[in-house]
Design a protein around this nucleic acid. Structure first.
Length: 258
DNA sequence: ACAATATCCTGCGAGC
DNA sequence: TGCTCGCAGGATATTG
């Protein structure tokens, strides 16, 4: 479920409770997820910070990185040990000062691993291939156009491709394309200069706006195309259309998007 | 080399 | 009510 703004919100919500604490206990509730011994290098070590790359959460602990990917249904929460453990909790890390970090994941597609900081990209190849951070100043229009040129894939496909650009998923992809007035099946390289400029601006705008709203869709949802599914376009009233891209559905407005 | 698909999981709602 | 099917805010290995 979580895309860049959602991952950002998880980090904002938890990092204050994590930074400075030591990890002193491990409870693995899903054997498939990881083994308790994987956390040996972290025992009694202090958490120095939490960061994000694409949709990956990176917890720095004394020369090691606790790498977490939430995939479709993962979530993190901090809690005191006496709080009720919710249903799909897969891992609990006991922290100093009466605190726990809990990893929940209904569909069990999420990833948790511990790797040495120096070999991070070796152990997590996806990080090595990761495309530019869309909200970074380094991600320029020039750079975006360079990546689009010669790209034969559909534009929605490219936006979902983490090695093309980091952090965008199905929902924000649809919203970005809606606001850009571009249909999901357009060939990436065929976008006009005006279209690539609009798309670039909307990538930054939509993701930034969503981050400001803590990825809380309630305030933001009014102009979301998706989440209304078979509804009508909020802008022109046309019935929304649905196409398959990358084996998943994209929703768009045939009236507003070309 | 690139792009499309099949697969990993679980749970929910729709339709029979 | 109970079953099956399709689908889900993702990424990767495999196939074409």
């Amino acid at each position: 479920m979580p895309e860049l703004p959602d991952v950002e919100a998880v980090i904002k919500r938890t990092e204050g409770d994590l930074r400075g604490r030591t990890i002193d206990a491990v409870k693995v509730l899903d054997k498939k997820l990881t083994s308790p011994s994987a956390f040996n290098p972290l025992t009694d070590k202090k958490i120095s910070g939490v960061s994000r790359r694409g949709k990956f959460i990176l917890v720095s602990v004394d020369g090691h990185i606790l790498v977490i990917h939430l995939r479709m249904t993962g979530d993190l929460a901090t809690a005191s040990p006496d709080e009720k453990v919710e249903r799909h909790t897969r891992l609990i890390l006991g922290l100093s000062g009466n605190m726990e970090l809990r990893f929940m994941d209904q569909r069990r597609l999420g990833i948790v691993k511990v790797v040495p900081e120096d070999d991070l990209k070796k152990y997590v190849p996806a990080l090595d291939r990761m495309g530019p951070e869309p909200l970074s100043p380094d991600f320029t229009l020039r750079e975006f156009r360079r990546r689009l040129s010669g790209k034969k894939a559909m534009i929605k496909s490219a936006l979902l491709d983490q090695s093309f650009i980091a952090g965008i998923g199905n929902i924000y992809g649809d919203e970005i394309l809606f606001q850009s007035g571009i249909r999901p099946r357009r060939v990436a390289a065929d976008l006009t200069d005006a279209e690539s400029k609009r798309l670039y601006d909307k990538i930054k705008y939509v993701l930034r706006k969503a981050c400001e709203h803590d990825a809380d869709l309630s305030g933001f949802q009014r102009w979301f195309v998706r989440g209304r599914k078979e509804g009508r376009c909020p802008r022109c009233g046309t019935e929304l259309a649905r196409v398959r891209v990358q084996g998943r559905y994209s929703y768009y407005c045939p009236g507003c998007q070309r």
